[in-house]
Design a protein around this nucleic acid. Structure first.
Lengths: 386, 386
DNA sequence: CTTTGTTTGTTAAGTAGCCTAACTAATACG
DNA sequence: CGTATTAGTTAGGCTACTTAACAAACAAAG
């Protein structure tokens, strides 16, 4: 019996794990920099990086020269750390990103669906399967192993198998079987957008906020103290089921607020009110309405203002329950710069102080969010238990 | 220069801190028991307890004999750990508890206010001052030092000084100055009740749930993943500002839902509908209404059912936003056993799966909750930084 | 070109806080 | 009275960090 402990997949020290996480989260850095952030001494940092380097979990990326003194080696996550695939299974496009754990983009592709899908269905499932398959065949050895696969879906996502039964989430797997042994991360697309807004968008620096999406459908992603709120059934943020209409003698109807605030009902109201004899024809869709309103068309402005008031009431209810302090508006209609002032005014009048901003990211928010969540899920697996 | 490091307030080891916390949270225990729970070895436990015993942070409480083997020493938090004062500054009573960090009751008193107070005011502040003063003079040396003072107030409580300005919270200090150098914990009374329901009441074992209070006023305490949600301005749970009434063409009015669901408006509606020529006179207050309904009076039952439907709509909105999975109903009206079935039915029809239960604690919920929060605030101070 | 000060990185030695193993002590039970 | 069991202590060791000191590599000043 000889001693081969040193060659076994040695469990990493805490400092090595922390250093790896740091490199994955905030990108390449030198040992002194990481040590500074983590509060670790230079010898410890050297030992930690040595551990990681031996496993090829990190690589030297370059040398950096400060204003004074010896130049330092800069490290980044290495080949053995591998890569992740992130998919935004949207209703019009499937967007796919392949990236390293520190978010270096390895591959990216967008597939446009033949028609807009209202529900998660077999067609979308098949499209995701195709997209993932095309990534798998394009995979290069210098990407390292595939560590996790994340999919953002326009559906409620529950955690426990029992709760999944009542959900649409598993429809995504009707035509798509994930690669064997690969961790799959499934998350609601609005939640993903919220994550991205916090990291790269309008909510940077806010540990608590709500992302409210107003488009064809409505939804919310809630971040409280840097934690995504999912709820017992994955239904947190499903504001399409707020009690509405509700008044003395008026009983709420399930899902009515989603229909009422959704873009289709909005356009119906706009068309009904549109001056029939005017020079300008009624807008065909929400984008057209926004364009007219932003150009100053009085009817469009007025109808959008009414709509913004309803969104303001919606936001007021959210504020009354979780008091996020910041609400980021997104989605087809929600992204309009005309909304925030009105929404803010109404919400603040009805409830407690909130700042209302429009989204800081485009349609990319969802992919970027699922990418982050996928990486976060992959890291502990790479580092073992912890 | 001689070495007196050993006598200085030596910083405790992690294991000692963990052991102390365990003793404070779950009461007296033997070293093997604590070691088991914390996953620490017997030598480590002995060392940890020795550290704590030297500081008089723990004491031997008794010897316990298992079914077999040597008997073990049982430890509990000691004199030097001190005590905390917890006050429920309610609208009708001021309830005060003095307890050790492991919740052994040292003193308890209830002061009945001359009249019911709608708002936090100088009268309440003065009463709190008197109650605390009477505790301070009654203090015994074997209570050890006073570690913290907690007050549950019927007001929104904000954290940062800037945000406190718009709040009523500081009214509590108009006539009351806390003892010098003592940490003061201020918390909303509904939040306190939620904490107590989770620890000792209807939400035991649930890490996520909402406590909804329906009485003269309405309010909510929200617990997500064992963390109390306070919000950016301490306004989380202020459901009195949900958008209401709200329907196509109907604009919400600030605070209207609180007036509409509050007990006064309820009784107004009941009186208006009460059969003028019946044998039974209209109930004078909410308690009388509940008594009649529980006795089977048809009008009372019907009016309570209508009210429960509104509460159901309220709960549905909460579920749509945070999906707590469990809602505990409390407060004067909310505590009625007639409510949960109806509320549950409506909420589940409008939104996502929720269980609805009535409170498991009486009026004591609030003091018990603030007691726990006060202890939790005191422990890190005792153990130093950590 | 040399010196000086600064930063990076390594080496050596020490320490805190845990562990296991082995022992002693105290108890119930047959 | 021995045996099995549990509580508690002692001795020794290990891991993951630390500080201190030194070596290496650089910019800037002399």
């Amino acid at each position: 019996m000889w001693d081969q402990d040193k060659k076994l997949p040695a469990s990493l020290t805490d400092s090595a794990r922390a250093a790896f996480r740091e490199l994955a989260r905030t990108g390449p850095a030198t040992r002194p920099q990481i040590g500074q952030i983590l509060g670790l001494s230079r010898p410890t940092m050297s030992a930690a990086i040595a551990e990681l380097e031996e496993l090829a979990y990190v690589d030297v990326s370059r040398e950096v020269q400060g204003p004074l003194g010896r130049k330092a080696l800069e490290y980044r996550v290495g080949v053995a750390a591998g890569h992740v695939i992130s998919v935004d299974a949207g209703s019009t496009h499937i967007q796919t990103r392949v990236s390293t754990l520190d978010r270096r983009l390895l591959m990216s592709q967008t597939y446009r669906l033949a028609s807009s899908q209202h529900l998660l269905n077999d067609y979308i499932s098949q499209a995701v399967a195709d997209q993932v398959q095309s990534v798998l065949v394009a995979a290069r050895t210098d990407w390292g192993p595939l560590r996790a696969l994340g999919i953002a879906v326009p559906a409620r996502v529950a955690e426990t198998p029992k709760d999944r039964e009542r959900t649409e989430q598993d429809v995504i797997f009707n035509r798509f079987t994930p690669p064997d042994g690969i961790e799959v991360v499934l998350e609601n697309n609005v939640n993903c957008a919220a994550v991205a807004e916090q990291l790269y968008g309008a909510a940077v620096g806010h540990s608590t906020f709500a992302y409210v999406q107003i488009g064809l459908k409505i939804g919310m992603g809630l971040m409280l103290s840097d934690r995504l709120v999912r709820g017992r059934n994955g239904a947190a943020g499903e504001i399409g089921h707020l009690a509405f209409p509700w008044a003395p003698g008026v009983r709420p109807v399930p899902g009515e607020i989603e229909r009422y605030i959704g873009a289709e009902a909005l356009m119906g109201r706009v068309r009904a009110k549109w001056p029939p004899k005017g020079d300008v024809p009624a807008p065909a869709d929400a984008d057209a309405l926004l364009a007219l309103a932003e150009a100053g068309n009085p009817t469009a402005v007025e109808e959008l203002r009414r709509h913004a008031e309803d969104v303001g009431a919606l936001v007021a209810s959210v504020v009354s329950i979780v008091d996020p302090g910041l609400v980021v508006l997104g989605g087809g209609v929600g992204a309009s710069p005309l909304l925030p002032p009105i929404v803010s005014h109404i919400a603040n009048r009805l409830s407690y102080p909130v700042e209302v901003r429009r989204t800081g990211l485009g349609r990319d928010a969802t992919v970027l969010g699922i990418e982050r969540l996928t990486i976060e899920a992959a890291i502990p697996r790479i580092l073992g238990q912890s």
